[in-house]
Simulated scan of single mutants.
Amino acid sequence: MLDVKLFGTPTLSNDGAQIGMSCRKAWSLIAIVAAGGGRPVARSRIAGQLWPDMDEERARRALSTTLWRLGKLISRHDIREDGLLRSDALWISLAPGAGCDLRDFRMSLEAAEVGGGHECLERAVALHAADLLPEEDHSWTNLERESVRALLVSALDKLLAYYESARDHQNCLRIGQRLVAIEPYLEHAHRTLIWAYGGTGERAAAARQFGRCAKLLKSELGLEPMPETVAAYAQALGVGTSESTLLRLAPAPAPGARPVGAIARLREHLQGAQSALDELGRA
């Protein structure tokens, strides 16, 4: 069985034996077809995306040449020329028996949308082992890479919410760590990790996660953690969530900096109240 891997360094293999392919346009051609999620893709669309600087006729000829070269390559390994891609005058699709991680990634996400559940999301995120064709740098590949990355983030986010609602701390840690590695500014993902570390008794890890979150928010966005994040931290440490506790745990603003966010406003409010009490005590 032919199998194509497009996440990370691309590979083409037949029953586990790798087939060398140096034509970079062929990899992009396979990726465009695979991105259709199992549906045929118009030849005119593929030609325009792979050769945007050519007129339509020249782009179509270049596409036909690339298809011919790809067919000849796989036929040298005792595979039918159409064993990977099937084409006619208008459409190109992946051959039914060929495997492809990008196509399966998109199909798994589609299945999840129509009731496939978290198992389909798990399959999708497992398939995304690395960025799509990371060494390719042209407009279609760059756009598809970002599109796939956004789909991965969305799938991880849904899985994190699912496991949090199921109070599954270990899976929250597994998914949450991967999510914040990709999107480090998602405060709710840090918050879930803090909660999950607390649930497994790893208070030191919860403290480190809160520290990383607070540092990122402050250094990159000029923000403080939300009250919900500070509360999750307090719960992970087992110290309660009273206002005085939250105030003590919330990171203090830098000297001379204007406080930002709800916790900062809480700090100002409590500090103001304390100042008023001190004045009354001196009266």
Rank of each mutant, 00 (worst) to 15 (best):
K215G: 08
H138T: 13
T141S: 13
L29C: 03
A214K: 03
G201S: 11
V125Y: 05
H188P: 03
P134E: 12
E220W: 09
T229H: 07
G38H: 03
L133I: 13
G238S: 08
Q271V: 04
H269F: 06
L29I: 00
R149H: 14
Y162L: 11
E110K: 13
L90C: 09
A34H: 01
H269P: 00
L159K: 03
L156N: 03
L270Q: 06
S13V: 01
Q271N: 14
D137H: 15
E122M: 14
R191N: 01
L249H: 12
R61W: 04
I74L: 12
G20S: 14
L121Q: 07
C23S: 10
R45K: 12
T65C: 03
W140N: 10
M107C: 13
G256R: 06
S75I: 00
R103L: 11
H77Q: 13
M21H: 02
A214I: 08
P52I: 05
R212I: 11
R212A: 13
R45L: 10
H118R: 14
R86Q: 14
A98S: 15
R248D: 11
G36S: 04
P253W: 00
S87L: 10
P184D: 03
S22Q: 09
I19H: 02
V4S: 02
C172K: 01
I32N: 04
V114H: 15
L152S: 04
V153I: 15
A62G: 09
T241C: 12
G222D: 10
A31I: 02
V153D: 07
R203E: 14
S139R: 15
L247V: 04
L109F: 10
I263S: 05
P259R: 07
Y162V: 14
A196T: 02
R58K: 09
L160N: 06
D101N: 08
A161L: 14
T192S: 09
L12Y: 01
L2W: 00
G240R: 12
K5A: 12
P227I: 04
A161F: 00
R80M: 10
D131F: 09
A250C: 13
R265C: 07
G20L: 08
A207N: 11
G48A: 10
L159V: 11
E81Y: 11
G201K: 13
L50I: 04
A234D: 05
C120V: 07
